[in-house]
Design a protein around this nucleic acid. Structure first.
Lengths: 352, 352
DNA sequence: TTGTACGCGTTATCAC
DNA sequence: GTGATAACGCGTACAA
């Protein structure tokens, strides 16, 4: 390369000059009030409760607001009213497409309503979860969403004490903290087992994390396998799933055990995709010599060959519904269905 | 499936009961002050400027803060002091691993300092960017980070007027709004061309977005190709890149043009990975009949076969440095290097 | 080193 | 339908 980097001569785009550019920040409510010839509280009402003003006053005030570019100070508003427009979402892992899709669904509901979305990553760590839940006490968001179910009693208590709407997701526990948009991980495991058994596979294995949702999917899988008189031929647990190579390593583990296996259910698609790649690298034909089944469809799953068969749900829809629940509660209403179950779906592709 | 979903019987984890659980929210500063036998301002100083208190007073006050679980109200604090602890980051696309890595680097610097990270997605849309920059005026964050360079003059002006630290990234323009952790996209394109030419490929093609960084990478690529007496044999522009299938479609386009091409540079790894998959699906051997080169290493790039050769940089490090710059400025200092250039790297794998 | 007085910008409350 | 007053909880400025 050159000694000197070449500049990126970015195209600057000039848009229509804003008419009377309010050069320095937003004016205060008092200034707007003076210009409009009303009191500050009337300006406030023009924004918060327009129906309480006469048509004429409202028009006049909104006009001045528009011209001056007034925006109310969120800190003052939150301090006085006790409500902020910040919604926090905690994601187990931002690298996962499914979680990101859920966030986008959530945002699609909340952003048009003027809520700001704050995102945190728990990294499947209890310690981090405790720290983040604690930080909520001082952050005082309007509502909270999790791409998980809270397992720590300490955190469940703390969340209840916040007195704000909370949505948990991604599992179907009996007693959510507040609201829930979930699906049954046990059923997902069972669904996986049934599909493999239907296809005629008999020596079934499982790869997944040993705790949390991995354990739930394993439970359903194992029960269904045993109900059909088959047995779980092998089990590989992984500590953490960060990339495809974890799936490759897990399959390598499985094979080195020497167990005879004709199908493996991986608790997520990252593991499953890695497993398909590893199998192919070893010259093991998928699905002829080894069938692979995943969970939680992701972009690469449908593109590798053979395509990955997977049990999945609509993550964007999950996020959207979570957003709707929060919205309803933030509007002061009680949602008609605060606990929702999302259907699971089996996408059959080439790997089984 | 069953009619009734099976519940996920999540394990509830009971941690050591917190000693004297402060059941209802955080107390106010005044309460803490009374208990400690000091004035409210002394409590404030114990947290903000501990060095101004005597050892004894500080210990006494901090002890009460600890026991009562006091946390100061961020809205009141922000309102009075004019500074908040909210840092906003705008990402072009949350589905991209590289951007997420950068966010994690950013968070690694800012979160330990007590800053909250708010994430927004611009989706490469000018309209969205305008709306988000506008929302900053009312949100009043402490600082802002972008995984892009701001092209709209309107937004550049608006950001300057906020008077807060701003870091742009992911390109190397001559005149950043404020601070920059960038790399040269033009150089990246040139680096790609040089590698392909060195390898002996002569009929080179480009696939990428027509604007923004895609255009910059194309510029460097094309210049270098022409400098070596070769020509750009084909060019496919794509409107938006959302998934691997966009890369597959783009390569299909390229091939249907009938141009004879022996190597293609894709402006990002998602496109490149899709191109490799499409080539393989068509029985085109990579790299023998077609070499593929990407930009911005991602998880799948190293795992497909052949592995994808790619020009890349350290996205986590980019985020980390952006965080350091913001931190320095938020501490009131002037960073010694407010404009930083990140080195590019060529990862040679099997696809070239 | 500690405290007093006041104000940050908005909205709840109640009066008109 | 509109306004006066006070208060949200904290930190700045200045005094002691």
């Amino acid at each position: 390369m050159k000694e000197q980097p070449r500049y990126d001569d970015v195209v600057r785009i000039e848009t229509s000059a804003s008419s009377s550019a309010p050069s320095t920040g937003s004016p205060r409510i008092e200034v707007v009030a003076r210009i409009a010839g009303v009191s500050p509280i009337t300006v406030s009402r023009a924004l918060r409760q327009p129906e309480k003003l006469s048509e004429a006053t409202r028009r006049k005030v909104l006009d001045v607001i528009e011209r001056t570019g007034y925006e109310s100070n969120p800190h003052a508003r939150a301090l006085r009213s006790g409500r902020s427009t910040l919604v926090t979402a905690f994601v187990s892992n931002m690298m996962s497409q499914q979680f990101v899709l859920a966030l986008q669904g959530l945002a699609s509901e909340l952003e048009p309503q003027g809520y700001e979305l704050m995102i945190g990553q728990t990294s499947y760590s209890y310690a981090k979860e405790i720290a983040m839940v604690r930080s909520l006490r001082s952050l005082r968001p309007a509502a909270v969403m999790f791409t998980s179910v809270i397992e720590l009693e300490e955190n469940r208590r703390a969340l209840r004490e916040l007195g704000i709407p909370v949505v948990e997701t991604w599992a179907f526990p009996r007693d959510p903290v507040d609201m829930l948009v979930g699906f049954s991980n046990v059923d997902a495991g069972a669904m996986a087992a049934r599909h493999l058994l239907d296809r005629g596979y008999r020596r079934l294995a499982f790869i997944g994390r040993s705790g949390g949702r991995g354990a739930l999917r394993l439970k359903g899988f194992r029960e269904e396998v045993e109900n059909h008189g088959a047995t779980l031929a092998a089990l590989v647990t992984v500590p953490e799933v960060r990339s495809l190579s974890d799936g490759r390593a897990a399959l390598a583990d499985l094979l080195s055990d020497g167990a005879t296996v004709d199908a493996v259910f991986c608790a997520n698609d990252l593991l499953a995709t890695g497993a398909v790649i590893e199998a192919r690298a070893r010259g093991i034909s998928v699905p002829d010599h080894l069938a692979v089944l995943g969970f939680g469809d992701n972009d690469a799953s449908g593109q590798i060959s053979p395509g990955l068969t997977t049990v999945t749900m609509d993550a964007y829809e999950l996020g959207r519904r979570a957003g709707q629940l929060l919205k309803t509660r933030l509007d002061g209403s009680a949602p008609s269905a605060p606990i929702q179950l999302l259907p699971l779906e089996l996408l059959v592709r080439g790997s089984t």
